[in-house]
Amino acid sequence: MAQLIKNQTVTVDGWKTLEIAANEAAETIALPSGDVIFPLPVWQVRKAEIISTHKRIGLLLQPGDCIKDIAADLDYFIVIAVNFPKFVDGRGYSIASLLRQRYQFEGELRAVGDVLHDQLFFMARVGFDSYALKDGKNVTHALKAGFSPFSDSYQNATNQPLPYFRRRAA
């Protein structure tokens, strides 16, 4: 079970993620009740059903998913989880930047998958605000040091819309 970091603390995760097994299809898979994070293919084919049966809806994006496809749906989601299948796959950073800066998504943006200590700072900068730290990793040290290796940054990003050169004292 991944350890969920949110608001600078380890929290209990009330969300469950719907997983599609190899022998199941998005069209027919049973939809669990409660707070569920739905994979994009399920959302795309079962949207009306999900909206009528679930009050709080989450969405799971894979790195190759196209955000434009769901741009009109963003208001439905309390949480969007972006998967990092491997931590070296950096597409999730651009997805987060786009969701926050281009599409003004204001819900919870969660990094899931191969989420490690040394990427937390970058994830926070592009707009993630919750992090499912990989199993077995030192969450205490991650909280203490992972978010603050640098006290400032040169370039603008989601969590600091002005580059350093626009914040220099004249």
Partner: peptide, 13 residues
């Protein structure tokens, strides 16, 4: 150079 240093979006191209 400054802009590209620790750019959060482009560290894992």
């Amino acid at each position: 150079r400054q802009w590209s240093t620790f750019h959060p979006e482009f560290a894992f191209l």
